[in-house]
């Protein structure tokens, strides 16, 4: 029997499409999480009220931020799950090596981020519809009118943030796969740093660095750059590891 040559790009494509079919349940969980987030959002984020004589005005604020936060958590956990034995073993049933397995995982996480971004942005409209149908508000308005350009840049940055959270999850997953001690070390490290840095602004600075940036281009560089570095470390970590133990 003659031997077949192998095209690495083809294998990555095949694995990617295999993953999309095999991991549909991950998207079901995403929808459930987003619906729960919409439910939480219904309570509103704030309220102000005033009255003059017998006439009163109360303004209730609603926001889709919770949906976005929940979707980030979902992206984070999904990435960790992809590094677990259950998911990696399905890769190595067919043609695979470290490189194709990791790259197809990253491609899958990117697509998951895109889908997560679309649905979480649309969830805001769901929120509005629910408001219109089930709540007896006298008047509804968006706080700001959003132009198409803003919407698109908002959509893209949502993708980048989700992708970055999946990169963090992927690295944590690879670390714990490499050594089970990290299951203890990582939470201890996070809690410990929260305690140590309680007085300093370092945690604020980090979140400011990533989240308080109005320039689209700068957000793009920061998030995609961070994701790239994190994925690279993950790939180096998983290199040389045995599979199907």
């Amino acid at each position: 029997m003659s031997l077949n040559n192998v095209d690495i790009k083809r294998v990555i494509r095949q694995q990617f499409s295999y993953k999309c079919k095999a991991n549909t349940s991950l998207f079901t969980s995403m929808i459930v999480i987003q619906l729960i987030a919409v439910l939480f959002s219904l309570s509103g984020t704030g309220m102000i009220g005033t009255s003059i004589g017998y006439n009163g005005v109360s303004i209730q604020f609603y926001s889709g931020d919770i949906v976005l936060v929940f979707t980030m958590i979902w992206a984070f956990i999904t990435a960790i799950m992809l590094t677990t034995k259950t998911y990696t073993e399905t890769d190595y049933v067919f043609v695979a090596n470290h490189l194709t397995s990791n790259l197809s995982n990253i491609a899958f996480l990117f697509v998951a981020s895109v889908i997560g971004a679309i649905t979480s942005l649309l969830a805001v409209y769901l929120l509005k519809v629910v408001m219109l149908l089930f709540f007896d508000h006298g008047w509804m308005a968006a706080s700001q009118e959003i132009s198409v350009g803003q919407w698109v840049s908002g959509f893209l940055t949502t993708i980048f943030y989700l992708f970055m959270f999946s990169a963090i999850g992927y690295l944590i997953g690879q670390l714990t796969q490499r050594n089970k001690l990290f299951i203890v070390i990582i939470p201890a490290f996070i809690i410990g740093s929260l305690v140590i840095f309680v007085g300093s602004t370092i945690l604020m600075d980090i979140s400011q660095f990533y989240f308080n940036d109005s320039s689209f281009f700068s957000v793009f560089i920061k998030t995609v750059g961070t994701s790239f570095i994190l994925f690279l470390i993950s790939m180096v970590l998983s290199n040389g590891q045995e599979v199907r133990k």
Partner: peptide, 9 residues
Amino acid sequence: FHNLFVSVN
């Protein structure tokens, strides 16, 4: 070990 050519064949 993790050779794609071996894996495909």
